[in-house]
């Protein structure tokens, strides 16, 4: 029995190692043909054209652009929802909000992508904001909506785990509910809340379908919300689904961009874990 369980653990390790190797090998071949200096420092991305250009910065800024707008939605609204659910909501309100959040989390991303493209973008235009048909803002906002339940649910779990004796202690000193929530419960739950934020940011960076449908494929450096941008994930998905020949330099760019994406997410996780260790308030 122990053997079977150990095998389960080993399989997950093997899969992880396998993915890293599968990313590394074509990426290393790519970097023998294109210098890392060109890849990471130049701002022209045209790997499928002649003459080809391999500056990944437009894809990175495109990802940052959509991720930023996703964060403006999912982090504050997610934390606010979590505080409400954990500290304020009566059972009747919870009975409505929790299932709605679960439904939201279960909507397929392709549906959300078309919602961004065919509802949100026209809405923004009808409000007088001349965004492009494909734009970073609509895609980012809808990614934020997608991730809101993740942040709300994980943050709520972290806050629920804070012992009620701490709440009673602060109520007993004359604190009101908002002060108890923000000065005692949130600080005590900060490691779990930060973990939910990091997971959300990682998933916003890695989200593919919504940006592929709604953010466009125009690889240029832009931080304007109304501009069409291409993200790293959208490039990988569009190019992988296209007709690039296996083994060509265009094919290998997919892996180089994938590796870049992987490293960015990994670094983000490491930094976040360190920050949480430093700032968290450990109860018991």
């Amino acid at each position: 029995m122990i053997g079977v369980l150990a095998l389960c653990a080993v399989i997950s390790i093997l899969v992880t190692v396998g993915i890293v190797v599968a990313l590394m090998v074509p990426s290393l071949e790519f970097f023998t043909e294109v210098s890392p200096a060109e890849f990471f420092t130049t701002a022209k991305w045209a790997p499928l054209f002649k003459p080809a250009a391999f500056g990944v910065l437009p894809l990175i800024t495109g990802t940052l652009n959509t991720t930023f707008w996703a964060c403006t939605i999912c982090l504050p609204l997610g934390l606010g929802t979590a505080i409400y659910l954990s500290e304020y909501a009566r059972p009747r309100a919870r009975a409505v909000i929790k299932p709605v959040l679960e439904v939201l989390a279960g909507i397929p991303t392709v549906v959300l992508g078309y919602f961004a493209l065919t509802f949100l973008t026209p809405l923004l235009r009808s409000l007088g904001w001349q965004v492009e048909i494909f734009n970073a803002f609509s895609a980012g906002i809808i990614i934020g909506v997608l991730l809101l339940p993740t942040v709300a649910s994980l943050s709520e779990d972290a806050m629920k785990a804070v012992p009620s004796s701490l709440r009673e202690g602060s109520f007993g000193l004359g604190a009101n509910r908002f002060q108890v929530s923000t000065r005692v419960v949130v600080p005590a739950a900060i490691s779990g809340i930060a973990a939910s934020f990091v997971l959300a940011i990682s998933r916003a960076i890695g989200e593919t379908t919504i940006v592929l449908i709604a953010a466009g494929q125009l690889a240029h450096v832009s931080f304007m919300p109304g501009d069409s941008v291409e993200t790293m994930t959208a490039f990988i998905a569009a190019t992988g689904a296209g007709d690039v020949p296996v083994g060509s330099i265009s094919y290998k760019t997919i892996f180089a961009v994938g590796l870049t994406l992987f490293v960015i997410t990994l670094l983000l996780n490491i930094v976040a874990i360190r920050m949480v260790r430093r700032f968290r308030e450990v109860y018991e």
């Binding site: 202690g169 005692v184 600080p187 109860y283």
Partner: peptide
């Protein structure tokens, strides 16, 4: 309370909590 329930903060911030919120 029955069980000591200091906040997971410094000694100073624990005693300062009530005065601060009020």
């Amino acid at each position: 309370f029955q069980k000591p329930n200091p906040f997971p903060k410094s000694i100073y911030d624990n005693v300062a909590f009530g005065p601060r919120v009020l």
